[in-house]
Design a protein around this nucleic acid. Structure first.
Lengths: 212, 212
DNA sequence: CCCTGTGAATTTATTCACAGCA
DNA sequence: TGCTGTGAATAAATTCACAGGG
């Protein structure tokens, strides 16, 4: 029954989940969910089947239990505390953005910086804390996720320090590869300028489309 | 010689490129480049081999020609103009972030919004323009890439309008699937809250690591 | 001997096709 | 009949293993 769930599936689950919490339906079919999220219906059925038979044949899936199950799988059912390190443009934007998205499952509980001019200023509902307090705050606030929005030069050292006190998961916006010595630390790298460069490959000739 | 270059390779090229422009070396081996960017050396050799034999056996790769070739592949050699639509937290942060990253290859040339209170304000070196001017600006500024940092409700319609006047590539931060009718439009979806949710799967038990 | 280039093997992911149940 | 669940087929990506040139 319980085989390993592929990474690709895990990365799709949050997209399903968001639609499920906003859809205002009691039941849904893989076709509808696929339409809404941009994946194929087979893919969705296969993904959902990894964690048991939730659908009823001929009908579809009950939204509420499906939603609960995805939250359980993603470990969102008891909430995750995240810490943003680096209160520059990106860091502050991220805090405010997540703040206003009203997420209850993943919550940003602290913003750190090492610039004395920034420490103490308000960002959304938080106050920027000095980097020296990092280890203590991670401990007391039960931080399980690190969001790195700082310069490449500092990112590696900070990640190492966070990993040392038990942070296993990172969202890294710094333009550098993070390699803590720990094998079970997971780093998701997002580099906005790299994304744009890769995208540029797909730009090709700039021609107005015929209205089909 | 010229078989199709896989998508996965294209997405890695920008990471190689960034290291190549900052490394201050004349030659580099696949091992060194791999160490620096976090990929395996075999992978790098395979990637680079897709666009011809650039290395010399026993020695490595000449940095300058390799750099030029990657830029050519990614179509970064003649520059790409991008337009950011939505001057909220994320949009403004993105503009300032890319501004200060001093990118010459992908350049943000315009920021649009529909809020009269925001139109006319400065964001980095740009002034926020009204959404009505979008089609005209895309034309006159030769915009080839759209960056969508606006609410889900507006994103689909805006993308459609942009595609109609020839924008083929989108970086979509809005929490919604973009489906223009056009098959050759490429949408890269980035959803920061979804990334954090997927990451939460990897948080598991929060235990300090033993210093190994 | 070192490091590239590349077929072959393997792993991973997606799509197909259809059996089975409401 | 409609939609799920799933093995089988296919495709894509990665890793292995080593031949071959400098």
């Amino acid at each position: 029954m319980s085989q390993r769930i592929p990474d690709a599936t895990i990365r799709r689950l949050p997209a399903y989940l968001r639609w499920l919490v906003t859809c205002n339906l009691e039941r849904v079919t893989s076709g509808i969910l696929g339409q809404a999220t941009g994946f194929s219906s087979e893919q969705i059925r296969k993904d959902l089947a990894y964690f048991g038979a939730f659908g009823t044949r001929g009908v579809g899936y009950e939204v509420a239990p499906l939603r609960r199950e995805i939250m359980r799988i993603l470990q969102l059912d008891h909430g995750i505390q995240a810490m943003v390190v680096g209160a520059g443009h990106l860091g502050t934007a991220l805090v405010r953005y997540v703040d206003q998205a009203q997420q209850r499952d993943v919550k940003i509980v602290a913003v750190m910086d090492n610039n004395p001019r920034v420490i103490g200023t308000e960002v959304g509902s938080l106050v920027v804390q000095p980097i020296e307090a990092m280890e203590n705050l991670i401990e007391t606030l039960h931080v399980g996720m690190g969001v790195l929005t700082l310069p490449a030069s500092a990112a590696v050292e900070i990640a190492e320090r966070m990993a040392n006190v038990g942070v296993h998961a990172f969202l890294n916006f710094a333009p550098v590869a993070i390699c803590t010595g720990y094998p079970d630390v997971f780093v998701q790298h997002i580099d906005l300028t790299l994304e744009m460069q890769a995208l540029s490959y797909f730009v090709r000739t700039r021609q107005p489309h015929p209205i089909s």
